[in-house]
Nucleic acid binder design. Structure first.
Lengths: 128, 128
DNA sequence: TATGAACCTTCCTGTTACTGGAAGGTCAAG
DNA sequence: CTTGACCTTCCAGTAACAGGAAGGTTCATA
């Protein structure tokens, strides 16, 4: 498929997809006319990149995650180390998002119009 | 407190804290010697910024969240709209992180050394 | 067959959100 | 009174894109 369809299916702008090729994250085929030609596997990777980027992982971290995902010898120790590290990070992110969610919900439902110094939520914002 | 301590307590580099002042996210006092002087409230905001940035919110989104947090008239409709939108985004992020977590755990525990085409996890990576 | 819209290509510039470093002022300790 | 660890501003560089120009491709329609 062409870049437009890959863009539609992955949610990433075509510009970004070309950029990811520039920095070596993906390597699509080329058709005879010179157009990039993406397969289902490429779209999987692009969706994966779209997600992990939007969740606050850097491009270099995404590169590691992709390598993990592509690595043929998954049993190797360092690959497992990277995965374990990422798991810890993911758990932290989930915890922080949950707290942020709780805080926002308080802001909307509980704290309707109170002046700031009286509001106990202000403290919660910075804890953890 | 000086910027060094604010940096230590918030987890943000001093450089970044100065940048956030440049773009108007925070407004610390100044001591007589010209040094920036941060209060507990500033540190709260900085920790908040540190978190929400690392969770994939843009600086402009963080500015909205901060405004929400500072707004004296929290009952206003548009403030509630912004909060509701952010809550939806947060829920999506939590779902995606949970899926990513599951996938990584499979990669580490279940899929030890299989060749790629045989591994059912590859499909999971792009769904949702 | 041609012409126009909707694709695609590369290349170059601009933006966002920092990051590093130079040049120099401030402060507490020895 | 100097040394080292702070702090200041300013300017340049990087990361991760985004916008747009200039031009080739494809396909439906006149």
């Amino acid at each position: 498929m062409n870049i437009g369809e890959a863009s539609g299916r992955s949610g990433l702008p075509a510009k970004t997809i070309r950029y990811y090729e520039d920095i070596g994250l993906i390597r699509p085929d080329r058709s005879d006319n010179g157009y990039r030609d993406y397969g289902a596997d490429d779209v999987h990777k692009l969706r994966f990149l779209h997600r992990s980027r939007s969740l606050g992982f850097s491009v270099e971290e995404c590169r590691q995650l992709l390598a993990l995902y592509e690595d043929k010898s998954r049993a190797s120790a360092d690959v497992k180390d990277i995965a374990a590290t990422k798991l810890t990070e993911i758990d932290r992110k989930i915890r922080e998002l949950t707290e942020l969610r709780r805080t926002l919900e308080h802001l909307v439902h509980a704290c309707h119009g109170n002046e700031r110094p009286d509001c106990p939520i202000l403290e919660e914002l910075s804890e953890g």
